[in-house]
């Protein structure tokens, strides 16, 4: 906090700043590196422990490098988690696509083809994004039973799609709000109806918003634990459930748990690495919002 708080000498011209800025920059980079290390610390422990033998992987030796690098932990974790990974993909992908498409249509309507009370409707939809799901969980369990949605992947697809709608609607609405009305009008003049306008004008320019929305939905459904806990189990549920059972088992198999945590995080990390630029870029340019 103190680096820039030093009253810098007259800021008017470059030369005065040089020696102060050398000090400032040193402190600045020092801090950045320090935080970098702090952030990476848990990742380091995860990484090295996952390669340790069972005896070597104890909390008291958390900071040491493995006495002997071996892949057994990874193999055991993979055996436990791989079926769950498949299930998680088969749950997350449809849920993300469905909620993204429905959200984009909603966003279109709410921003460009409005009806009276659209703002109120939007606000009511938005509320759904913030509710703690605990406040609907008990009747939700009963409702899903009444609808006889099988537990596991089908239930979770339904839930992640539905409870994803507020946020996808919001993002698309804000995105479409930035689209000039002239485009819509031009389509209208050509006699295009609402759906045609959506498909021919909006969809083609929606890619950036889809990237952001799909990324969010993918990540949040992948990382979800609450719905998974209530609506699935370790035999038909996603990887968060299996991982937690792996990690809280009685014979605490630390190397396998740590390898499992890494395995379970790979898909979302890959998404971030590949698409993070769009996300951060979108955030920074403010282009996602209206």
């Amino acid at each position: 906090m103190t680096t820039e708080a030093l009253p810098a000498p007259v800021q008017a011209s470059r030369p005065a700043g040089t020696h102060a800025s050398v000090a400032t920059r040193t402190v600045k980079y020092g801090l950045l590196l320090l935080f970098l290390l702090l952030i990476l610390m848990p990742a380091y422990v995860l990484f090295v422990t996952s390669f340790k033998t069972i005896g070597d992987a104890t909390p008291s030796r958390a900071w040491n490098l493995p006495a002997e690098w071996q892949l057994d932990g990874w193999r055991r974790a993979w055996e436990t988690l791989s079926p769950a990974l498949v299930r998680t993909f088969s749950m997350v992908i449809p849920a993300a696509l469905l909620s993204a498409f429905i959200g984009s249509m909603n966003g279109f309507v709410l921003s460009k083809w409005r009806f009276p009370g659209a703002d109120l409707v939007f606000t009511l939809i938005l509320f759904g994004m913030f509710i703690p799901y605990q406040a609907v969980m008990i009747p939700l369990v009963q409702l899903m039973q009444a609808l006889s949605v099988p537990s596991g992947v089908p239930s979770l697809i339904v839930l992640h799609t539905i409870y994803g709608l507020p946020i996808t609607t919001l993002i698309f609405r804000n995105y479409y709000a930035g689209v000039p009305h002239e485009l819509i009008e031009a389509a209208r003049v050509d006699g295009a109806g609402m759906l045609r306008t959506y498909a021919s004008v909006m969809l083609p320019i929606s890619m950036p918003a889809f990237v952001v929305v799909l990324m969010w939905q993918f990540t949040s459904a992948w990382n979800d634990y609450l719905f998974a806990l209530f609506f699935s189990n370790s035999r038909n549920g996603p990887v968060t459930i299996s991982l937690n059972f792996l990690a809280s088992g009685q014979l605490q198999d630390y190397s396998a748990s740590m390898a499992g945590a890494l395995i379970a995080s790979v898909p979302t990390l890959v998404v971030y690495i590949l698409l993070g630029r769009y996300f951060v870029g979108g955030l920074m340019a403010g282009s996602v919002k209206g």
């Binding site: 609808l147 006889s148 949605v149 596991g152 339904v158 109806g193 021919s200 969809l203 038909n236």
Partner: peptide
């Protein structure tokens, strides 16, 4: 294009309906 998007929308909704009502075949797990 209209048809396509309509179809897409309907497909999405019907998928939702199917998964919401198609639970008669017993447990998955």
């Amino acid at each position: 294009a209209t048809h396509k998007s309509l179809a897409m929308g309907l497909a999405a909704l019907s998928l939702l309906a199917v998964s919401a009502c198609g639970g008669e075949d017993g447990g998955t797990g």
